[in-house]
Design a protein around this nucleic acid. Sequence first.
DNA 1: CGGGCTAGCATTATCGATAATCAATCGAGG
DNA 2: CCTCGATTGATTATCGATAATGCTAGCCCG
Lengths: 215, 215
Amino acid sequence: MAEPTQSRVVAELRRRIVLNLLTPGAVLTELGVAQDLACSQAAVREALLVLAGEGLVVRAGRHGTTVTDLDSDTAAEILDLRRRIELRGARRAIRRATAGELLELERIQFAMQSAAADGNAWAVLERDMDLHLAIFRLSGLHAMAPILARCMLHTHRFRLWAPWHQRDLTETAARHRPILDALRDGDATTLARTLGAHLDTIVERAGNDRRVRAA
Amino acid sequence: MAEPTQSRVVAELRRRIVLNLLTPGAVLTELGVAQDLACSQAAVREALLVLAGEGLVVRAGRHGTTVTDLDSDTAAEILDLRRRIELRGARRAIRRATAGELLELERIQFAMQSAAADGNAWAVLERDMDLHLAIFRLSGLHAMAPILARCMLHTHRFRLWAPWHQRDLTETAARHRPILDALRDGDATTLARTLGAHLDTIVERAGNDRRVRAA
DNA sequence: CGGGCTAGCATTATCGATAATCAATCGAGG
DNA sequence: CCTCGATTGATTATCGATAATGCTAGCCCG
């Protein structure tokens, strides 16, 4: 009850799509998922609207909305985009971060570790995105945050789609610590290095057969 | 009647925001614009949802949704992003464009010229975005098209917000021709040059006076 | 006279019903 | 047997009504 209906269904559908429980090409009917999730058609409709805005589904007029396709070319391109956005954002963030904001970052990282300890992979993922987003927001580049969120969603979806997605959760959570350290120390070069390396580990081998571009 | 209610109100609100008829900070109540645009609350609600997805408004819980702020730092960053996306996309587009697709591009460009002849600035803008988007779609990087659309929306909004936005419409329309030519000829370097130059003209010197606030 | 509480109000959130629309299917005619 | 057209079924689109919620102004009490 505490959770609003609409964000609940958005979150749930997003989870299923990113986790590839809903595979590309699957068609969703508004009334169908309304019944599935025990809510009204309007709620589902609005949820699908925002999911479409995130690029996870495409609304095909009257013929249901379908889950979007994945391809490694696009995934690689989006990851590059993400890297660029985050690195540039982090550079600005150093000059602007306040103590309180850094504390909030720590809090999120701690929540991620807790989720990892519980073995809750999805929660880890959510906290991961929260953390990266929170770091980016320090840059003050407000209007770009949703773009980054989008990129993250897609990179994770692609990562989980690939067969080699098993990853140790606690290690994943721990990997964010040096980034926070560099941020707190105001060390720009270390931050760029650790953040860059971190981003590289996300899809380490995803397409090093396909990918030839600059790093 | 021919036009669906929902896309109509989305288009109208988007127009007002990009044209700065609705200024940053303005609050919109669902019922209010419903009355203004002669439609139901639900239609407005959904429209605001997609506008929020585009980053033009931010939905603030119970106190209405407000039009987002503009700042030149973000605008510059987004323009850089846009340039990168479009240039990389164009490089791929050359290898993939079919004759039919090129014809469609011509058609859009023609529509833009017509709109320019009519002095309809907004229509020119819409066709401009259509054209850039259509070109990008040739790259096959499907999931990134909405990101580009977003970037374009924001660059235009910022451009129109700045005082020096007067531009000759027919000249703007004509400026796209060499891009199409290069695309048809399959000349990658010329395409990159003309497209890059074109993007430079959008916000020629936006922010070299305003950009000092970072320090 | 000031502070906190309450009642009313403005606004969003959610729902169920109804209209509009498209696609596929079934049937009749050639 | 094939083709074209009407009918039907499924699904989205749109609306108005109702519930929930947070805010504000005004009132009561200390």
